[in-house]
């Protein structure tokens, strides 16, 4: 290989060595930059600054989350925090650590239950809407429906929370027995509706991005629309669809207002969705908007729960990246 390349270079490359020097040797033509281009430099500095600022802000958030979290864990064991089944952080003497239980499991379980309910609503509805918009709807219908769907994503979550408490819970109360007005079922379902536009819109984008040629190939082989959608378009768009669902999960885990309003503020470990229970975000909202004196145990616990929330979302995102890589069909 090396020999042949070097031969090629001597043969076809610059005519160094033998031969006359080119006639223009010593030319005075200046091909250097003729005018200073300050504007370009300024723009570049601004753009680089914007990029690094967002990185810096992210790092800043993590750091400011970490320091109080570390303080929290000097008083509470990691095991007691992660696996304890009782959370009484808001009770008792505000400045005493020892009279409280710091087991975060009740909050985590409540978050998980609400999230699962929300996904049970959002994934089928969202993907159904995505399939309809991308594969079945006419151009005209799509042009109307997609913006409407995206407006749905812009409704403030506090409105959804109110909806859950005042409309959905009473309706559900006719069907299932609730002990209090607060429960996890109603906010879960409403949160699912809230996430539908996210899943539908991103899912539709992913499926629309699948080349038309693949669909044509499928139709030309005698496949109908459903088979083309499920066997060709859906697998080809899977990575985008998984990303849409993961974003939905992240929104559900991090959603605050709906659960604060409709799931109540009792931190209790229960797997019964008819019961009210406080989620991680619900706890943070309640304490942060109430009286948590700086430096008090419950103040530090806010950061610990926040860090856990951050870690959970991060894990979900990492897992989804792996999942997508594994099942991705490149087209």
């Amino acid at each position: 290989m090396t020999t042949s390349r070097s031969t090629a270079e001597t043969a076809g490359g610059r005519s160094s060595g033998s031969g006359r020097p080119p006639a223009w040797r010593g030319s005075t033509i200046d091909l250097g930059q003729q005018h200073p281009r300050y504007g370009e430099r300024v723009i570049k500095v601004i753009l680089v600054g914007a990029a690094w600022l967002s990185v810096a802000v992210t790092i800043g958030i993590v750091v400011s989350l970490l320091a109080p979290t570390v303080t929290f864990f000097t008083h509470v064991g990691l095991g007691a925090f992660l696996f304890g089944t009782e959370w009484t952080g808001g009770f008792g003497n505000k400045f005493v650590w020892d009279d409280k239980s710091w087991g975060v499991l009740p909050l985590v379980v409540a978050t998980a239950i609400v999230t699962v309910i929300a996904l049970a609503v959002a994934v089928p509805l969202g993907l159904g809407a995505a399939i309809y918009l991308s594969e079945y709807a006419s151009e005209r219908v799509r042009k109307v429906l997609k913006p409407v769907l995206e407006v749905l994503a812009g409704i403030p979550t506090v409105v959804y929370g109110f909806l859950a408490l005042t409309i959905f819970t009473p309706i559900l109360a006719n069907l299932v027995q609730f002990n209090t007005i607060h429960n996890m079922l109603s906010p879960g379902i409403v949160m699912g509706f809230m996430i539908v536009p996210t899943v539908a819109s991103l899912g539709e984008d992913a499926m629309s991005a699948v080349p038309l040629a693949l669909r044509q190939g499928s139709y030309a082989l005698g496949a109908n629309r459903m088979k083309t959608t499920l066997r060709v378009v859906f697998p080809a768009a899977l990575s985008g669809i998984v990303a849409a669902i993961v974003l939905g999960i992240s929104r559900a885990v991090g959603e605050t207002m709906i659960v604060t309003i409709a799931a109540g503020s009792r931190a209790q470990l229960t797997f019964d969705p008819r019961e009210g229970a406080q989620t991680m975000t619900g706890f943070i909202a309640q304490i942060a908007s109430g009286d948590a004196p700086q430096g008090s145990p419950v103040y530090y616990s806010l950061f610990a729960v926040g860090a856990l929330l951050f870690a959970v979302t991060l894990l979900i995102n990492l897992a989804s990246i792996r999942l997508v890589r594994k099942y991705r069909q490149v087209y």
Binding site: A213, Q216, G217, S218, A220, L221, G222, R231, Q329, V330
Partner: peptide
């Protein structure tokens, strides 16, 4: 379309295995 097949301008295999590409028509 099963009786009158079509081959397109640009090769458009499905993002599947070679086997599944060929088996696609008979399956669907």
């Amino acid at each position: 379309r099963r009786r009158i097949g079509m081959v397109f301008q640009k090769p458009n295999p499905f993002p599947k295995s070679i086997y599944d590409n060929v088996a696609y028509g008979p399956r669907v």
